[in-house]
Nucleic acid binder design. Structure first.
Length: 422
RNA sequence: GGAGAUUUACCCAAGAGGUCGAAGGGGCUCCCCUGCUAAGGGAGUAGUCCGGGAAACUGGAGCGAGGGUUCAAAUCCCUCAAUCUCCGCCA
């Protein structure tokens, strides 16, 4: 969430910046509520100060065994007034909070102004799509022929958009998870976290999935828990309501989890293969950074994620999302897209974002440079490093051979114990 | 799932409806004292959030969380959460 004081003091600027996202946001309403809140707060606090003083008088009179009934009856009336103001205040504060939660982050000024993904800016293209010299197969066909996946039975035991991996398919998925984690731990110096797959409502709100996007999440019946849509949620919330030591920033975490998404708005899209699933694996990178250098940290986080594709030898490109395409909580996002022959285009495999203090304010994650200084909000960043299922798809498709076999990239062989899938 | 206990500041911990933003330890910071160390003596040590103010300063909130009772709540009542012990069940 944005800083309400900043919004009050810079209302027109905020509205102008948010207009680049397209869409309407209740900035005026938030400002109005905040001003009302301050006015009532001023009144009620005068009354409370009076009550505190007079109650002190009562205590003294009682100790001296004197009569205090006139003050008490007067304070009864004051108490009623306070109660009325407090009720108004909590109503306004609740409404203000909901309003602020529905206002997205201000896009960073380096973003191209644009409407949708057509206006994103390609930063670099690495590697070249291979010239096959034969008709390449999509990964779902290869996977079926090689016995890596069992979608009919996945449908039977669970439903659509779920996958049963088996044999070398299961091993490939597991190998990629280990390879990604090891790269980030040993090459890139991240600290590994293995969190719960369910989180409570406060965590989902802290990172911005709630209240606006509740229909995208799976809720666990008879509880107030949600299945994690990404490790970003549990890992970022590790430090919710904490004050971190500024000297320890940046804190760098990597985390493997399964991820669960309802894909509510995606009916009919990517129905075949591994691209869009209700349950998928992902290795996530999360950073808690100092505001002074969070944009450098965004560059290095993106490079860390790219390193996976480089080591695997997969062709990819990196784009900066435009103002109309950047996510709700993000100030700046780079998408990393891998070449997917069956789609004949690049497909998103990682999304690396700097949320600045937007998430940190929601989740109340602060730091102090030293003991004497005031706590400030950290900048939070995250990015996939990478989505595992889509990596499996990319490997199968990009490294397939004419005879239907798939060559395992060098970097994965020590995790796979075989050089090819046949 | 059942029963009981606990939750107070950096840590441990005392706390009666009014004198409590909170005794007492420990730790930490500074000072004194001894050749150094150990020991001893003294002083300091509530952070945080929301207001007002140019500032000095000042008002309010804050004892696990949220409600309630009361002129007044760490203290009484209710709901919830976490931790511990025992029982049950289980990988």
């Amino acid at each position: 969430m944005l800083d309400i004081r900043f919004v009050v003091d810079n209302k027109e600027f905020v509205k102008e910046q948010l207009s680049h996202r397209g869409g309407e946001y209740p900035v005026d309403k938030a400002v109005e509520l905040e001003l009302k809140r301050r006015a009532i707060l001023g009144e009620v606090e005068v009354l409370k100060a009076k009550r505190n003083k007079e109650s002190e008088q009562v205590a003294q009179l009682k100790r001296a065994k004197q009569d205090a009934s006139s003050i008490i009856s007067e304070m009864q009336k004051v108490g009623e007034q306070i109660k009325g103001f407090d009720a108004q205040l909590s109503e306004i504060e609740a409404e203000l909070k909901m309003t602020m939660l529905s206002i997205p982050n201000i896009p960073h000024n380096t973003l191209p102004v644009g409407k949708d993904d057509g206006d994103n800016q390609v930063m670099r293209v690495v590697g070249e799509p291979r010239n096959f010299g034969f008709e390449p197969k999509p990964h779902w066909e290869l996977g079926e022929q090689l016995g890596l996946f069992d979608w009919p039975r996945a449908g039977k035991i669970t439903g659509t958009r779920f996958t049963v991996y088996q044999g070398l398919g299961a091993r490939l998925e597991r190998a990629i998870i280990s390879f990604m984690l090891d790269t980030h731990i040993f090459d890139n110096s991240y600290f590994e976290i293995y969190p719960p797959y369910m989180v409570n409502r406060a965590s989902m709100t802290g990172t911005g999935q709630l209240p606006k996007f509740e229909e995208d999440a799976f809720a666990v019946k008879n509880t107030d828990y949600f299945l994690v849509p990404t490790a970003e949620v549990p890992v970022t919330n590790l430090h919710r309501d904490e004050v971190l030591d500024g000297a320890k920033l940046p804190i760098k975490y990597c985390s493997y989890t399964a991820c669960f998404r309802a894909e509510a708005g995606s009916a009919g899209r990517d129905t075949r293969g591994l691209i869009r699933q209700h349950q998928f694996n992902k290795v996530e990178l999360v950073k808690f950074a100092h505001p002074d250098n969070s944009y450098e940290e965004l560059e290095s986080l993106t490079n860390d994620a790219e390193k996976i594709l480089q080591k695997l030898g997969l062709p990819y490109r990196v784009s900066m999302l435009c103002t109309g395409d950047v996510g709700f909580s993000s100030a700046k996002t780079y998408d990393i897209e891998v070449w997917m022959p069956s789609y004949g285009r690049y497909v998103e495999i990682s999304s690396c974002s700097n949320f600045e203090d937007y998430q940190a304010r929601r989740a109340n994650i602060r730091f102090k440079d030293d003991k004497a200084s005031k706590p400030r909000f950290v900048h939070t960043l995250n990015g996939s490093g990478l989505a595992v299922g889509r990596t499996v798809a990319a490997i199968l498709e990009n490294f397939q051979n004419e005879d239907g076999t798939v060559t395992i990239p060098e970097a994965l062989r020590k995790y796979m114990y075989v050089d090819e899938i046949k």
